[in-house]
Design a protein around this nucleic acid. Structure first.
Lengths: 214, 214
DNA sequence: TATTAGATTAAACAAGCGTTCAGTATCTGT
DNA sequence: ACAGATACTGAACGCTTGTTTAATCTAATA
């Protein structure tokens, strides 16, 4: 999916933009900063991308393509993001950029999120059918939950790393959290199902009441 | 914790700032926007808060105080945030502001996050001792995981709401996710512990190797 | 070699930013 | 009523922003 002739000035500008925007955010990154990092003039960026939003669009497209380039799958999934976390030399800037994109409310963020969400729902349905995971009472709700949980370490990456004494996201950081996460996903968290049952009956009662009130 | 005489011009400016910054982010919100919303001149904001960062500091303090004002506890916890989600009329702007604060890397964000994290760790230890939750092999790791997961719906609030067909975070949205979350926290996700056991043995092997290599 | 199109730049532009300043109104205590 | 502080404003300042313009350099084409 990557452009074959991809060491052009255009590509250098775009990569500098991805790195800087991933670090400081779109709003805080000026065209002059990007120009200096790419070793060009600000005017050349406009010449190549039209305006700053055109540059952002090109960065969005390229970052999403980076994650899906060598896989048969076209969709960006939580799994692809998780595996990218283990190759930060190659995917570090792209992951930072993705985090900024998702935190920054925009139509592009919506599109990326929806793609990940539908991929997660598909995975849930497959693993449910294969008996790998328990049957879910609300697969769409579970998919949303897993998507939010999967993206949380990315969007809150700085806090995630800092809490474990690291400067930034590293493989060591993600390893540390693996066992607690698998414990939660295997045995759950609560020692019994009293809270779940209470919530379920409360929910039924709510539905009954809203049914009566109609 | 709230100022008794709190309908002053100063408070109006601060509330307008919380609302606007919560919606558009700190960087995208100008003093002139805040001034117009509060019905004052930009210069008056400077007069009351020194500069834009002084205003931000006042907003940070006030938002954190809002969540903890009527509780005996001084710390901002996930539980307080969850309950605030059920009273959006009162806490909506504060929640939005908190989300922007956490997504925006800053020393203030670090402080808030650390507070929530230590509160979560304390809760885990209590509930572990009370037998409400399973023993955790890595309580600090579990606390970090729960904090990230608890804040994810807030920081990704727009996506969270949008995925459920809502314009913004509403109680209906949080209700929808409750059952899947309690299912996960009660029964886990995986049908058996093969993945957990594989990860645990892989982890032991890594530790053995790193021990040998020393 | 002359022409033309694209790459690239320096310089300037208008607009918006946070902030300052000088001055006016408004309140407070004597 | 007076004095001093505080609340508040309009206008301007210096700076940065994204963008434009005109010119130059480069490379390919005819």
């Amino acid at each position: 999916m990557l452009d074959p002739d991809d060491l052009t000035t255009r590509a250098r500008i775009r990569n500098a933009a991805i790195e800087l925007i991933g670090t400081h955010g779109f709003q805080r990154t000026s065209l002059r900063m990007i120009a200096k990092a790419a070793g060009v003039s600000p005017a050349l960026i406009v010449h190549h991308f039209g305006d700053k939003d055109g540059l952002r669009a090109a960065c969005n497209t390229h970052v999403v393509a980076m994650f899906t380039e060598d896989g048969a799958d076209e969709a960006l999934t939580i799994e692809l993001i998780q595996s990218a976390l283990n190759d930060l030399d190659a995917y570090g800037p792209a992951l930072n950029y993705l985090a900024q994109l998702l935190a920054d409310d925009s139509a592009a963020a919506d599109e990326v999120f929806d793609g990940i969400l539908s991929g997660t729902l598909r995975t849930i349905r497959e693993q449910e059918a294969a008996g790998i995971i328990h049957p879910q009472s609300d697969p769409a709700g579970s998919a949303l939950l897993l998507t939010l949980f999967g993206l949380a370490p990315l969007v809150l990456g700085r806090q995630f790393a800092r809490a474990l004494g690291a400067e930034k996201l590293t493989p060591a950081v993600t390893v540390r959290i693996t066992i607690p996460m698998l414990e939660l996903f295997t045995h759950g968290f609560y020692a019994n199902d009293s809270i779940l049952r209470a919530a379920q009956s409360a929910m039924e009662q709510m539905e009954r009441q809203s049914g009566e009130s109609l």
